[in-house]
Structure formats: structure tokens, C-alpha cells
Amino acid sequence: MAEIQIKNVAKKFGEYQALHDINLTISDREFMVLLGASGCGKTTLLRIICGLETATTGEVWIGGRRVDHLPPKDRGIAMVFQNYAVFPHLTVFENIGFGLRMQKLPNDEVTRRVERVAELMHIEMLLKRYSGELSGGQRQRVAVARALAMEPDVILMDEPLSNLDALLRMEMRAELKGVLAESNTTAVYVTHDQVEAMSMADRISVMHKGKIVQAASPIEVYRNPAAEFVAGFIGNPPMNFLPATATGNGQWRVAGQTFDGPDTEKTLKFAIRPEDMAPADTGLVAIAKVIEPLGAHLLVTCDVDGGMFRAVLDSDTTVKAGDRLTLAPQPDRVRWFDPETTLAVA
């Protein structure tokens, strides 16, 4: 059992408040992704869980044990670093076995464990090499193997795939997910790549300016973003926003069209994902500006009510720049946000 609990954790670097009152529970064996733009505090939070950084206030619990006063080695964790930190002066074998040697495990146990994880990561033929003789992808595998060899309760990963090329990243993504699922460890994974987050996570914590804006399953984060920031950050292209005016009784006027919405007095923003619309007889009137055929579908950037608006349409749609489109949003996919709090309104 290795549930991670983060209770009221805050971190200040001098005057700069990097983290504000973070509360997060990561279940045993969960794959949790901390997602956010650079500078949002995701790596700081990971380093606090790891013990490389100390929280200014708050507590960190792992497996029912308070660990924030313990050194990293006593927390039952292992970490994969962004630049791999594969020791250049040690062979792959000694790199993977580094933590085991520090625990003073007997030689045959070290060999057994190193060979097992090397096989798991498909690097058994590289065990005698030095890191200078490895490719980026191989170094990455060594870094993961070194963490797995510790048989930790929790594995922490700081943008482990960010230094790989696109193709290798996709391959490693799937492989890493499989390996981690089999290893029965709790995983905390930091990334700024939303595709990585969506495809790997059991749950995503979207972070912004030192706060967790939303922590939910990938599909929930995608379908029901808790805040405007999440709606704009997740999804490529991001969600569309349009100003809306209340006309009473839960009716809203958006770009000349009437929609059902929340029954409130406030001013709200109307939001819809680009792929949740289709051309129809009635709907939002859009003037197509740029057409980008992407193979599987068509990305149309258009002008709705004087603002930029994107729609992902079927690739068979015939449309050219300057055309007038009528786009009907799927009613159950329409979301509403309060511009004052930037939070979603149901």
C-alpha cells in the first residue's frame, strides 16, 4: 500500500510563492500525472514528494507514514530524472544497481534484480556499456530500469520523455505505461505535454500558478474542465469561447443564437470543443478563414461574431476560405464559465 497524501503543502522561494496550499491524495497504484505549463510548480511539487525540496509548510504522507522530515532514501521512492542523470563513470549494470549497492544487498541479489529489470526494459545487451555509448532512448531506459530495480512503493518521474524525439516518445509512452502497470507501484509523472498526460494517466492534476486547478480522470478533465484555464490548456486545438448574454429563464444569447444554459444572473462565457460541432441548417454563423486538411479531419479556423473560432469537421466537408458556415454545437457538450472566477458553471 502506498497512498500519497499531500496536505496543505506550500512552498516559497524567497518572496516567490511557488506552491499555494496544495491538497492531493494519490491512491495506491494510481498513475497520477501533474500537468501544467513551465513554472506552474509541478516539478517543485514532485521534488517535495521526493525529498529533494522541503515544503515551507504542510505535510507529505506516503503509505500512511509522514515522510516530509525523512531523506529521500527513507521514503520508499525512486525517481527518473528529466536529463536521466545516468552516471557517466559507471556501466549500465552499475547504474541500474547503484541504489541496490547503497542498500548493501548481496552481489547475487543485485545481479538478479539488475538482469530482471534490464530484460523488462530491453537493455540486457547494454549492461557493460557506459552512458557515453548510449543513445538518448537507451539512456532513458537505463534511468527507468534504475528506478524499477529499487522495487519502490512510489516511482516519481520528471518529464522523462521530454528529451526524446517524437516517434521514440510515442513508443516509450506506451511501453512505460505497460511496465508501470505491471510493477504495481504508485506513479507520479510530471509533464507539460497534454497528449502524454491524457494517454498515460489514471488521473491528471492540472496545475496553474502554483495551484491544482483540477484533479480528475483524463476524460473528465477533457469533457468537463473545471476552469477556463483547463479548457484552454487541454485539447488541441483548445476549446472555443464566446461571450453570452442572459435573456432570462436559463436562456442565453450567443452570437445571435439562443442556447439553454444555467439559470443565473451573472455574465457567462459559452464554450464548445472544436470537434463537438457539425454543419447544419441552423446554428452559429461562421466565416471560414483558414482550412487545414489534417487527413482524418478538417481543421477550420473561422470568424464567429468577430472572434476567432475553430471547428474540426469531417474530412469530406467541402469548404473553402471565405465560405459562410452554419455550425450547430452538440447541446450536451456545451460548457459555461464565469469570467470573474474563471470557474465552470453547471
Partner: peptide, 26 residues
């Protein structure tokens, strides 16, 4: 690089071990 020391620390090397196993060889 600082990362080597962080990695060594996470994987259980004391300051003295870090000196022996990281600083000296590098």
C-alpha cells in the same frame, strides 16, 4: 552536473558516499 548528486541522494548515497562514488570518479 547537480543532477548526479540528486540522483545519488534519491538512490540512497550519503554525502560521504556521494563524494566517493560521484565526485571523485567524475
Amino acid at each position: 552536473p547537480k543532477e548526479y548528486y540528486e540522483a545519488a541522494e534519491v538512490f540512497g548515497a550519503s554525502k560521504w558516499k556521494q563524494f566517493l562514488r560521484i565526485t571523485l570518479p567524475l
